[in-house]
Design a protein around this nucleic acid. Structure first.
Lengths: 224, 224
DNA sequence: GAACATCATTTGGTATCCAATCCCCGCGAC
DNA sequence: GTCGCGGGGATTGGATACCAAATGATGTTC
């Protein structure tokens, strides 16, 4: 989703394709939290045997997106409100580090970010919400990657994927989408000034809306 | 290493045992960074076939401990100074969150931590350095776990394991060990006061010694 | 209604096999 | 000498077939 799982040039292995495909199924709500995954079914769907499927599931288990119980099988990880809050806590902690580490950006880099951000608006026509989500992810991670802290960004990537099945829909209605794009613009402005502290603050606020939505959706007191 | 991979009661699966065994081999320097791992060899050593071994390796790959290249195989991940610094950056960020979230501890909890800490000293007799390292890990994670932030602590666990093959040996000589235990005592004192900010500061300093050691060992400028 | 035996399904794992790939080593050309 | 260039062995990725063990649902008995 952030470009880390495009392994071009060489034809990917079955395991890699299985991982990508399962991730896609998660994004498209074809698989939902708590849902049991049948190895044989998945294998048939992917046109491979159970062996690569099981390795793919092990990868996703280690990422925290699947859960496994011996002799019972794999299921999409189900996070309760508290666990979800922890994922967002980790996101905040790590994203803050990355944003603080951003160097003064060049004009080209700032323009590139702007292009990516405005692309979110252009996805309006696109009824496919996946496109909007992807564009949003692309913007955020393009920014994160500029820090040069690759391992940290990889970790953040994992955290995003982990909460993906729970991400609410404030990107869907045009008002929410407009707000998102507007907040992104403010970040770009702060970046242009080289004011990383402001970017961190803006990102915290930006993230907070999602967290509030999540708590609302899960019917929990806001700051539990 | 922190109790997360002891899955008692039911007999563990071959994959679980393979993961544990490989982790043990990493701790004991039987496997070192950069070293190639031969599937067949490992399988024979564990008395299983290649399939569970490959699943175990996939798990460790997702954890960042192993690297995999298609058609070449698995090798123990080799981190350069910069990557190692990133791992420690993440540790600092997440451990800080966990320590800040610690509740006021009960007398029992404080006594338990003290016991674990003093156990590090008692390991002096033990020529087996693994025992010392394990005792140190036990102390730190007992403390972390008291936060109740299980997912975050799991993540910290992963980060510890990731840097494990590189951890330097300041626990080995009795002077270093004494310093470690002394610093732990200070943390316990601060915890008794409920002064979490002080604990964070102490932990930062504590960790900084290791980072400095690592940079020295890798022949790098201290704050590169 | 609770405890229990039965049984189909699924998983964990083995054994065996094969294609693709990689890597090394030697051979020849320059 | 060394730079390519081909084998060819070793290893990996994966398929297939098969089996034991565990699970969970079902029916049965009390």
């Amino acid at each position: 989703m952030t470009g880390t799982d495009v392994e071009p040039a060489r034809r990917a292995t079955s395991v890699q394709r299985a991982v990508s495909e399962i991730r896609r199924m998660l994004r498209s709500r074809e698989l939902v939290p708590g849902q049991q995954v049948r190895q044989e079914t998945l294998a048939a769907r992917l046109g491979v045997s159970r062996i690569p499927v099981r390795e793919a599931l092990k990868t996703l288990e280690a990422e925290g997106v699947m859960r496994h119980e011996p002799h019972v099988g794999y299921a999409v990880a189900r996070l309760n409100a508290d666990e979800l809050a922890q994922v967002y806590l980790m996101r905040r902690a790590l994203e803050t580090e990355v944003l603080r580490a951003l160097p003064r950006l060049t004009g080209d880099q700032l323009r590139h970010l702007t292009t990516l951000n405005e692309a979110i608006t252009e996805q309006v026509e696109n009824v496919d919400v996946a496109g909007i989500v992807a564009a949003n992810v692309a913007f955020h991670f393009a920014m994160f990657r500029l820090s040069g802290l690759d391992l940290v960004v990889d970790e953040i990537d994992r955290l995003w994927r982990r909460s993906e099945p729970y991400r609410t829909v404030h990107l869907y209605d045009s008002a929410g989408r407009a707000r998102v794009v507007r907040e992104h613009r403010k970040m770009i402005t702060a970046l242009r000034r080289g004011d990383n502290a402001a970017v961190v603050a803006l990102m915290d606020a930006h993230r907070e809306v999602t967290v509030a939505d999540l708590h609302a959706a899960l019917g929990l007191p806001p700051h539990a």
